[in-house]
Design a binder for these strands. Structure first.
Length: 422
RNA sequence: GGAGAGGUGGCCGAGCUGGCUGAAGGCGCUCGCCUGCUAAGUGAGUGUUCCGCUUAAAACGGGACCGAGGGUUCGAAUCCCUCCCUCUCCGCCA
């Protein structure tokens, strides 16, 4: 959500922002409704002020046992009038509010201009593509041979896209989650959170999954609840409707959650194996920071997510997402893509984003500035650190041996309880 | 799932036989006074948000907010309905 004052003061800025994100919302309609709304609001305020005055008079008269029937008669008319105006106001708001929720965040001016993922800019690369004297197998072949998972049986239980990890595969998955959580807690001082995996509509709207991604979420109609597509939703909403003491900032959380995505509209894309799933595991970092620090924090967040891949010796690159590929709520994002030698392609394992005050405004997440005691919105950021399925792929494919076994990188040994998967 | 109690300002807590209550009182906090220090005392202040005014801010004027939303009424923190949440008891259960 953007402040309505921004629409009034610099409508061009918003129009450009919307165009850059390839959305289509009628700003002039919003301006028109806003103008109308304020006109009615002023009328309503005046009438309510009068009601308060007369009401006080009636109260005093009654207290002194005087006759107040004239004033009451006057009030009857005034009240009916107020009800009509209130109705008008509500009607305007019913039109205006959904429009405001559909306005995307404006890209930061450091974001590269572009129309789709091909225009994303590679910022840096770490490590090298692994080389071997045998042909790299892909993760499905490796996993099948080592009996790490069973997609057929998973599909029989829950449908395609619901992975069933078994044996050493299940243990590796659990090891990765534990390793990453400990990594962020120990090395970066994050506070660990274990959130609900289900959220209310309001929480989804605060973080801006709703309205745009509504169809991409699993919805439990009977209880009017949504399965979370990311821990970002519950964790960001921890501080909804709060005014945080600025001594508490920055707040750094790290949370594991299962993530559920219907992936509506992406059928036929990445249908094989672990690359695109309806349910997957992810360790998510969420930050609440002062506005003046949020871009430094975005860099730090990205480095923190990268550190996981470095510690596991995986080749990766960082992309600065262009305006056209930036998500609805984000002002600036970096993607982290890990190299999968078997697939012979880059796989996205993390997106680190600065939402500025976009989510904070929706969720009323504020803080009190020490300097002038004023209340202002915090900036929120989040980034995966990281999602497991593609990390799993990269690990299997990078560390596969000619005999089909996997030599795990050192940090995982104690978590997995062994140095290799055979 | 059944029965009951309750949700008021940073916290505690009155109000809930409707009217002058954004809300008593206490605690906390801020600024000042007083006081060898501490403690006590004392004076003032201490919510959020929207609109208007203003070049801007402050100040000022006004509106809204007593879990959320609706209703009754000239008027609702107070009465009624729905929902959410908390607590107690019963049932069920990992």
């Amino acid at each position: 959500m953007l402040p309505i004052s921004l629409f009034r003061e610099t409508p061009e800025l918003i129009k450009n922002g919307i165009a850059a994100k390839r959305e289509n919302i009628d700003i002039d309609q919003i301006l028109k409704l806003d103008k109308e709304q304020r006109l009615i609001l002023n009328e309503l305020n005046e009438k309510r002020a009068q009601r308060n005055r007369v009401s006080e008079k009636i109260g005093k008269s009654k207290a002194q046992r005087e006759d107040a029937s004239d004033a009451i008669k006057e009030m009857q008319e005034l009240s009916n009038n107020i009800k009509k105006v209130e109705l008008n106001l509500a009607e305007i708001n019913i039109q205006l509010e959904p429009l405001l929720y559909k306005i995307p965040n404006i890209p930061h001016n450091s974001v590269p201009i572009g129309s789709n993922y091909q225009d994303n800019v590679v910022v840096r690369e770490w490590g090298k593509k692994p080389k071997s004297n045998f042909k790299y197998k892909d993760h499905l072949e490796i996993g099948e041979k080592l009996n790490l998972f069973d997609f057929k049986r998973g599909a029989a239980i829950a449908g395609s896209g619901f992975p069933l990890y078994m044996g050493q595969g299940a243990k590796l998955e659990r090891s990765l989650i534990n390793y990453m959580l400990d990594f962020h807690v120990t090395n970066y001082g994050c506070r660990e959170i274990f959130p609900p995996f289900i959220s209310r509509m309001e929480a989804m709207r605060n973080t801006a999954q709703i309205p745009k991604l509504q169809d991409d979420m699993y919805y439990i109609e009977r209880d009017d609840l949504y399965l979370i597509p990311t821990a970002e939703v519950p964790v960001t909403n921890i501080h909804q409707n709060e005014i945080i003491d600025d001594k508490e900032l920055p707040i750094n959380y790290v949370a594991y959650s299962a993530c559920f995505r219907r992936e509506a509209g992406s059928y036929g894309k990445d249908t094989r194996g672990f690359t695109r799933l309806h349910q997957f595991n992810k360790v998510e970092i969420v930050k609440f920071v002062k506005p003046e620090n949020s871009y430094d924090e975005l860099e730090a967040l990205t480095l923190q997510a990268e550190a996981i891949l470095q510690s596991l010796g995986l080749h990766y690159r960082i992309l600065s997402l262009c305006t056209g590929d930036l998500s609805f709520a984000s002002a600036k994002s970096y993607d982290i893509e890990v190299w999968a030698p078997g697939e012979e392609r880059w796989l996205e394992v993390s997106t680190c984003s600065n939402f500025e005050a976009f989510q904070a405004r929706r969720g009323k997440i504020r803080y009190r500035r020490e300097e002038d005691k004023k209340v202002d919105f915090v900036h929120t950021l989040n980034g995966s650190g990281v999602a497991t399925p593609r990390l799993f792929i990269a690990l299997l494919e990078t560390y596969q041996q000619p005999d089909g076994s996997i030599l795990l990188p050192e940090p995982l040994h104690s978590y997995f309880g062994a140095k290799e998967i055979v």
